[in-house]
Protein backbone atom coordinates (compact mmCIF):
# COMPACT_ATOMS: atom_id res chain seq x y z
CA UNK A 1 0.00 0.00 0.00
CA UNK A 2 1.17 3.49 -0.73
CA UNK A 3 0.35 6.44 1.47
CA UNK A 4 0.48 10.19 0.83
CA UNK A 5 1.96 12.40 3.54
CA UNK A 6 0.37 15.68 4.51
CA UNK A 7 1.67 18.83 2.89
CA UNK A 8 3.29 19.92 6.18
CA UNK A 9 4.96 16.54 6.68
CA UNK A 10 6.06 16.43 3.02
CA UNK A 11 7.67 19.83 3.29
CA UNK A 12 9.35 18.96 6.58
CA UNK A 13 10.95 15.92 4.92
CA UNK A 14 12.07 17.80 1.80
CA UNK A 15 13.20 21.05 3.36
CA UNK A 16 16.51 19.79 4.83
CA UNK A 17 17.53 18.70 1.32
CA UNK A 18 17.39 22.30 0.12
CA UNK A 19 13.99 22.58 -1.57
CA UNK A 20 12.93 26.24 -1.23
CA UNK A 21 9.54 26.66 0.45
CA UNK A 22 7.70 29.73 1.68
CA UNK A 23 7.66 30.51 5.43
CA UNK A 24 4.40 29.13 6.80
CA UNK A 25 2.58 28.11 9.94
CA UNK A 26 0.74 24.88 10.65
CA UNK A 27 -2.21 25.73 12.92
CA UNK A 28 -5.19 23.90 14.41
CA UNK A 29 -7.38 26.86 15.45
CA UNK A 30 -8.32 30.30 14.22
CA UNK A 31 -6.65 31.78 17.29
CA UNK A 32 -3.31 30.27 16.38
CA UNK A 33 -3.88 31.36 12.81
CA UNK A 34 -4.30 35.01 13.80
CA UNK A 35 -0.96 35.03 15.62
CA UNK A 36 0.74 33.45 12.62
CA UNK A 37 -1.01 35.87 10.25
CA UNK A 38 0.44 38.87 12.04
CA UNK A 39 3.92 37.39 11.81
CA UNK A 40 3.71 36.29 8.15
CA UNK A 41 1.90 39.42 6.88
CA UNK A 42 -1.13 39.61 4.62
CA UNK A 43 -2.28 38.63 2.05
CA UNK A 44 -2.25 34.96 3.01
CA UNK A 45 -3.27 31.55 1.76
CA UNK A 46 -4.88 28.87 3.95
CA UNK A 47 -4.98 25.17 3.04
CA UNK A 48 -6.42 22.19 4.86
CA UNK A 49 -3.61 19.77 5.59
CA UNK A 50 -3.77 16.05 6.36
CA UNK A 51 -2.22 12.70 5.40
CA UNK A 52 -5.06 11.65 3.19
CA UNK A 53 -5.61 15.00 1.50
CA UNK A 54 -3.71 14.69 -1.80
CA UNK A 55 -5.75 16.88 -4.10
CA UNK A 56 -6.70 19.99 -2.15
CA UNK A 57 -7.67 22.18 -5.09
CA UNK A 58 -10.05 19.61 -6.52
CA UNK A 59 -11.81 19.36 -3.15
CA UNK A 60 -11.99 23.13 -2.62
CA UNK A 61 -9.71 23.02 0.40
CA UNK A 62 -7.60 26.05 -0.53
CA UNK A 63 -8.44 29.69 0.36
CA UNK A 64 -6.57 32.37 -1.57
CA UNK A 65 -6.07 36.13 -1.06
CA UNK A 66 -6.95 36.38 2.61
CA UNK A 67 -6.48 40.09 3.35
CA UNK A 68 -6.98 40.49 7.11
CA UNK A 69 -7.61 38.85 10.48
CA UNK A 70 -11.36 38.42 10.24
CA UNK A 71 -11.06 36.85 6.77
CA UNK A 72 -8.39 34.50 8.13
CA UNK A 73 -10.51 33.46 11.13
CA UNK A 74 -13.41 32.75 8.85
CA UNK A 75 -11.30 30.80 6.36
CA UNK A 76 -9.67 28.61 9.02
CA UNK A 77 -12.96 27.76 10.73
CA UNK A 78 -14.54 27.00 7.38
CA UNK A 79 -11.67 24.70 6.27
CA UNK A 80 -11.60 22.81 9.58
CA UNK A 81 -15.35 22.34 9.23
CA UNK A 82 -14.88 20.77 5.78
CA UNK A 83 -12.68 17.96 7.06
CA UNK A 84 -14.35 14.54 6.98
CA UNK A 85 -13.69 11.66 9.34
CA UNK A 86 -11.77 9.91 6.51
CA UNK A 87 -9.31 12.79 6.46
CA UNK A 88 -8.03 11.79 9.92
CA UNK A 89 -6.07 14.33 11.87
CA UNK A 90 -6.07 17.68 10.08
CA UNK A 91 -4.53 21.12 10.47
CA UNK A 92 -4.45 24.31 8.42
CA UNK A 93 -1.35 25.61 6.67
CA UNK A 94 -1.14 29.39 6.59
CA UNK A 95 1.38 30.90 4.18
CA UNK A 96 2.03 34.21 2.41
CA UNK A 97 0.11 34.57 -0.85
CA UNK A 98 2.50 34.70 -3.78
CA UNK A 99 1.52 35.19 -7.37
CA UNK A 100 3.48 34.06 -10.38
CA UNK A 101 2.83 34.21 -14.07
CA UNK A 102 5.06 31.19 -14.61
CA UNK A 103 4.90 27.75 -13.02
CA UNK A 104 7.08 24.71 -13.37
CA UNK A 105 6.49 21.23 -12.03
CA UNK A 106 9.20 18.99 -10.61
CA UNK A 107 9.27 15.73 -8.77
CA UNK A 108 10.27 12.11 -8.41
CA UNK A 109 8.49 9.18 -9.96
CA UNK A 110 9.38 5.49 -9.99
CA UNK A 111 9.62 3.90 -13.42
CA UNK A 112 8.91 0.19 -13.57
CA UNK A 113 11.95 -0.51 -15.77
CA UNK A 114 14.44 2.12 -14.67
CA UNK A 115 13.56 2.92 -11.04
CA UNK A 116 13.47 6.39 -9.48
CA UNK A 117 13.54 9.30 -11.91
CA UNK A 118 13.74 13.07 -11.55
CA UNK A 119 11.13 14.94 -13.60
CA UNK A 120 11.06 18.62 -14.60
CA UNK A 121 8.31 20.14 -16.71
CA UNK A 122 6.53 23.28 -17.72
CA UNK A 123 3.77 23.63 -15.11
CA UNK A 124 0.39 25.23 -14.79
CA UNK A 125 -3.04 24.08 -15.80
CA UNK A 126 -1.85 23.00 -19.26
CA UNK A 127 1.01 20.79 -17.96
CA UNK A 128 -0.59 17.56 -19.10
CA UNK A 129 -1.64 19.07 -22.42
CA UNK A 130 1.68 20.66 -23.35
CA UNK A 131 3.88 17.89 -21.87
CA UNK A 132 7.17 19.73 -22.11
CA UNK A 133 9.22 17.58 -19.78
CA UNK A 134 12.73 16.30 -19.11
CA UNK A 135 13.47 13.10 -17.19
CA UNK A 136 16.64 11.53 -15.78
CA UNK A 137 17.40 8.52 -13.62
CA UNK A 138 18.39 9.02 -9.97
CA UNK A 139 21.08 9.96 -9.09
CA UNK A 140 21.75 12.93 -11.34
CA UNK A 141 24.82 15.14 -11.56
CA UNK A 142 24.90 18.91 -11.80
CA UNK A 143 25.57 18.53 -15.54
CA UNK A 144 22.54 16.24 -15.92
CA UNK A 145 20.38 18.80 -14.12
CA UNK A 146 21.57 21.65 -16.35
CA UNK A 147 20.90 19.48 -19.41
CA UNK A 148 17.36 18.77 -18.19
CA UNK A 149 16.65 22.48 -18.03
CA UNK A 150 18.20 23.05 -21.47
CA UNK A 151 16.13 20.19 -22.87
CA UNK A 152 12.75 21.84 -22.25
CA UNK A 153 11.39 22.86 -25.64
CA UNK A 154 9.89 26.11 -24.41
CA UNK A 155 13.21 27.78 -23.56
CA UNK A 156 11.72 31.25 -23.95
CA UNK A 157 9.50 30.40 -20.96
CA UNK A 158 12.66 30.51 -18.83
CA UNK A 159 13.97 33.80 -20.25
CA UNK A 160 13.11 37.29 -19.03
CA UNK A 161 9.34 37.63 -19.40
CA UNK A 162 6.97 40.62 -19.13
CA UNK A 163 9.18 42.59 -16.83
CA UNK A 164 10.13 39.55 -14.77
CA UNK A 165 13.77 38.45 -14.70
CA UNK A 166 14.88 35.18 -16.29
CA UNK A 167 14.48 32.02 -14.23
CA UNK A 168 17.39 31.38 -11.88
CA UNK A 169 18.76 28.25 -13.50
CA UNK A 170 21.32 27.70 -10.75
CA UNK A 171 18.53 27.57 -8.19
CA UNK A 172 16.62 25.20 -10.44
CA UNK A 173 19.65 22.92 -10.72
CA UNK A 174 19.86 22.88 -6.90
CA UNK A 175 16.22 21.82 -6.64
CA UNK A 176 16.71 18.96 -9.11
CA UNK A 177 19.82 17.79 -7.24
CA UNK A 178 17.92 18.03 -3.94
CA UNK A 179 15.14 15.84 -5.35
CA UNK A 180 17.71 13.32 -6.56
CA UNK A 181 19.42 13.25 -3.14
CA UNK A 182 16.06 12.85 -1.44
CA UNK A 183 15.16 9.89 -3.65
CA UNK A 184 18.56 8.28 -3.12
CA UNK A 185 18.12 8.37 0.65
CA UNK A 186 14.48 7.25 0.71
CA UNK A 187 14.11 3.76 -0.76
CA UNK A 188 10.48 3.68 0.38
CA UNK A 189 9.62 6.60 -1.87
CA UNK A 190 6.85 6.24 -4.45
CA UNK A 191 6.58 9.82 -5.69
CA UNK A 192 7.29 13.46 -4.98
CA UNK A 193 5.35 16.34 -6.51
CA UNK A 194 6.56 19.92 -6.28
CA UNK A 195 3.51 21.38 -7.97
CA UNK A 196 3.51 24.20 -8.57
CA UNK A 197 7.07 25.34 -8.55
CA UNK A 198 6.29 29.03 -8.90
CA UNK A 199 8.73 31.48 -10.44
CA UNK A 200 8.73 34.50 -8.10
CA UNK A 201 11.07 37.30 -9.25
CA UNK A 202 12.96 34.67 -11.21
CA UNK A 203 13.42 32.38 -8.21
CA UNK A 204 11.73 28.97 -8.16
CA UNK A 205 9.67 28.39 -4.97
CA UNK A 206 7.77 25.21 -4.17
CA UNK A 207 4.31 26.32 -3.12
CA UNK A 208 3.00 22.81 -2.56
CA UNK A 209 4.63 19.45 -1.93
CA UNK A 210 3.26 15.94 -1.91
CA UNK A 211 5.33 12.94 -0.87
CA UNK A 212 3.99 9.44 -1.38
CA UNK A 213 5.63 6.47 0.35
CA UNK A 214 5.30 2.72 0.37
CA UNK A 215 3.97 1.63 3.74
CA UNK A 216 5.31 -1.90 3.54
CA UNK A 217 8.89 -0.78 3.17
CA UNK A 218 8.40 1.83 5.91
CA UNK A 219 7.37 -0.86 8.35
CA UNK A 220 10.46 -2.84 7.42
CA UNK A 221 8.57 -5.59 5.56
CA UNK A 222 10.42 -5.25 2.26
Amino acid sequence: MTRTLSEAESKALLSPFGIPFLPEANVTSSGEALLAGTELGYPLVAKLCGDSIAHKTERGLVRLMIRNGPELEHAVDDLLGKATTEDGEVSVLVAPMVEATRELIAGITIDQQFGPTVVLGIGGIFTEVIVDVAIRLVPITEIDAAEMIAELRTQSFLDAFRGEPEVDRVALVRILLALSDFASTHPDLVSVDLNPLMIVDGAPVAVDALVEVDDRSESGAR
Binding site: T109, F114, V119, I135, L137, E147
Partner: peptide
Protein backbone atom coordinates in the same frame (compact mmCIF):
# COMPACT_ATOMS: atom_id res chain seq x y z
CA UNK B 1 5.18 5.12 -13.70
CA UNK B 2 4.11 3.36 -10.55
CA UNK B 3 2.79 6.40 -8.76
CA UNK B 4 -0.92 7.00 -8.74
CA UNK B 5 -1.19 10.23 -6.78
CA UNK B 6 1.46 12.34 -8.47
CA UNK B 7 1.18 14.72 -11.38
CA UNK B 8 4.81 14.21 -12.34
CA UNK B 9 4.05 10.50 -12.65
CA UNK B 10 1.47 11.20 -15.31
CA UNK B 11 4.11 13.10 -17.29
CA UNK B 12 6.70 10.30 -17.10
CA UNK B 13 5.54 7.92 -19.83
CA UNK B 14 7.74 4.92 -20.63
CA UNK B 15 8.95 6.47 -23.81
CA UNK B 16 9.93 9.75 -22.15
CA UNK B 17 11.81 7.89 -19.42
CA UNK B 18 13.64 5.86 -22.08
CA UNK B 19 14.47 9.06 -23.92
CA UNK B 20 15.84 10.69 -20.76
CA UNK B 21 17.83 7.53 -19.98
CA UNK B 22 19.50 7.67 -23.42
CA UNK B 23 20.33 11.36 -23.05
CA UNK B 24 21.75 10.82 -19.58
Amino acid sequence: ARAAASHTGSLASNDRVFDGMCRQ
